[in-house]
Design a protein around this nucleic acid. Structure first.
Length: 516
RNA sequence: GGCGAGGUAGCCAAGUGGUUAGGCAACGGUUUGCAAAACCGUCAAACGCCGGUUCGAAUCCGGUCCUCGCCUCCA
């Protein structure tokens, strides 16, 4: 698709918006820091995944060939600790959590990365990178008292240290916690390779049995799949320091005089709960599963797109009088998804049986046509502006409003045959536009029936209702209405409304849905 | 202490020199047996506070108050 505007992205490295142009025309190499799989994913993982998913979708819609790499860190001290706690093999734990991560991100309609490398499959590459750094004089080995050897990166050996996070070594050291580890030449030096733990967990290496340090896997794996010096590197804001700073140091020290490790650095903002960063220690931690228990995955995705990716996103929970815990923001987003799905359904009904026609378009359709014709470009322009998803969602709202207007008009003018043919054609265009605009955002990706069914099922469960129970009450009310006993019908409706059931009385009977 | 982000109507959230953001809630209307949904309208002469630049500032500059984040594992 051709684009009028230029894609602009906020580059953390330069601290400003920059026009994006790929190193190799038409192709983009993107590396995003994925999860350390020691636990189930939380709302923050979802936010990061969705932000970069929209980036990938947008780049591809712009006609770029994207190689998207997102790692899985399946060897890490947190995994070791948790596995020991569980009495489980570390790699078994990480495999289990990797599966949960894939399932959850899949449910959120995040596209699969082109490559999803795991640390456990890349020890060779990691060891080679560490060896190169030792050869370059950027890293050194340290003999440990109880045997075994660590390898550390020497921050003093890399001139540009601190360029991403705008930190000076002196400032860092002034504020640094005093480390007991006096084996390091400089307090800011960090581990590339760590000797095996006391229980002997580790992999063979030139420095004895051990395991990789935290940052090195991303340097080794990104370079393997994208080559050194790729287009975009992304991750959460908390990774700027030390993770990404250290990645840059390692990677550029291993490839001297070859330019920057990555051109553009993108960082998504946090998910906050009660204005504070979500974290386990504060007890305000919300997992993706917690949300899925109460809300539709697409509603959650919509919610995560209501704020531009760099800003903080507040995720609040509320306890109702009946004891239910809800996420009001996600509920609101899910209602918007209901609205989009029902709009789409109405359009489809109207579009059925459309035939080509040379009839001149009626005046009352011109404004609607205009909205439909410009919408896709507006979404594209919004995403070009540093992935401004709230503006893109506003365009969706406009499409939906005018679509519903069209459907309302079609009811009023159903007897005007030539008008209806034009309206059908316009409905077809609206459907195409809506599909294109939601495709790039990863929304409205579920068949209508399936969406209706799964949301109904979940909402009934949350309200402790059964479908039979609701339908019995509905038909009781239908009978009362048939008998013109409106007092009874209204009383039954009041009961149903109390259950959270919304009814619509149509010519072909009453349809209903459960409210979020 | 160092570095960074932000304070926009009842709530959420775009905008970053002049022209509608959008959504939710509330209220009024069209429609309906009554409703709901949908659409229209109102709330909206909103931009933390104080100065300054400018014909014109939510937007630029200076100061100030407040909130949050990173500096230690974190998306």
């Amino acid at each position: 698709m051709k684009s009028a505007s230029k894609l602009r992205l906020y580059n953390t490295l330069e601290q400003r918006l920059e026009d994006f142009s790929p190193i190799q025309p038409g192709k983009v190499g993107l590396y995003v820091c994925g999860p350390t799989v020691y636990d189930v994913p939380h709302a923050g993982h979802a936010r990061s995944a969705i932000a970069f998913d929209v980036l990938v979708r947008h780049l591809r819609a712009r006609g770029l060939e994207v190689t998207f790499v997102r790692n899985i860190t399946d060897i890490d001290d947190k995994i070791l600790a948790r596995a020991r706690q569980n009495g489980e093999e570390p790699l078994q734990l990480s495999a289990r959590m990797t599966q949960v991560y894939s399932d959850d991100m899949g449910a959120l309609h995040c596209l699969l990365p082109t490559h999803q490398p795991k640390v456990s499959d890349h020890l060779q590459e990691i060891i080679e990178t560490v060896s190169t750094l030792i050869e370059q004089g950027a890293a050194y080995e340290v003999e440990l008292p109880h045997g075994g050897r660590d390898v550390y990166f020497s921050v003093r050996a890399f001139e540009g240290y601190g360029k991403l996070s705008r930190r000076k070594l002196e400032d860092l050291e002034a504020g640094a916690r005093v480390e007991k580890n006096d084996l390091k030449r400089d307090p800011m030096d960090f581990a590339l390779w760590k000797a095996a733990t006391e229980d002997g967990y580790g992999w063979p290496s030139p420095w004895g049995k051990g395991r990789p340090g935290w940052h090195i896997e991303c340097s080794a794996m990104s370079t393997k799949y994208l080559g050194f010096g790729f287009d975009i590197h992304g991750g959460g804001m908390d990774l700027i320091f030390p993770h990404h700073e250290n990645e840059i140091a390692q990677s550029e020290a291993a490839h001297p005089h070859q330019g920057p490790f990555a051109r553009v650095w993108l960082h998504n903002g946090f998910v906050n709960v009660d204005k504070e960063k979500m974290s386990k220690s504060l007890g305000n931690f919300v997992t993706v599963r917690d949300v899925f228990d109460r809300n539709d995955p697409e509603g959650f995705r919509y919610f995560l797109l209501t704020v531009q990716y760099r800003g903080p996103l507040t995720f609040d929970s509320e306890k109702l009088d009946d004891g239910r815990v809800i996420f009001p923001g996600v509920d609101e987003a899910e209602r918007r998804m209901d609205y989009l799905y029902s709009t789409c359904h109405r359009l489809r009904t109207l579009a059925e049986g459309a035939e080509p026609s040379a009839a001149k378009e009626p005046a009352d359709l011109a404004a609607i046509r205009k909205v439909m014709t410009s919408a896709r470009d507006k979404v594209s322009a919004a995403l070009d502006d540093d992935l401004n998803t709230p503006v893109a969602l506003a365009v969706l709202a406009e499409i939906a409003k005018y679509s519903n207007d069209l459907c309302d008009l079609a009811i009023k003018r159903r007897k005007d045959a030539s008008w209806v043919v034009c309206a059908r054609q316009l409905a077809r265009q609206a459907l195409e536009v809506l599909d294109a605009c939601t495709q790039v955002l990863g929304l409205l990706r579920t068949p209508h029936e399936q969406y209706v069914e799964r949301t109904r099922e979940r909402r009934l469960r949350l309200r402790n209702l059964s479908q039979a129970q609701v339908e019995a009450k509905i038909s009781e009310r239908a009978q009362a209405r048939k008998n013109k006993d409106f007092e009874r019908a209204d009383a039954l409706r009041a009961q149903l409304e109390d259950w959270g059931i919304e009814m619509a009385d149509g010519v072909e009977g009453t349809t209903w849905k459960v409210l979020v």
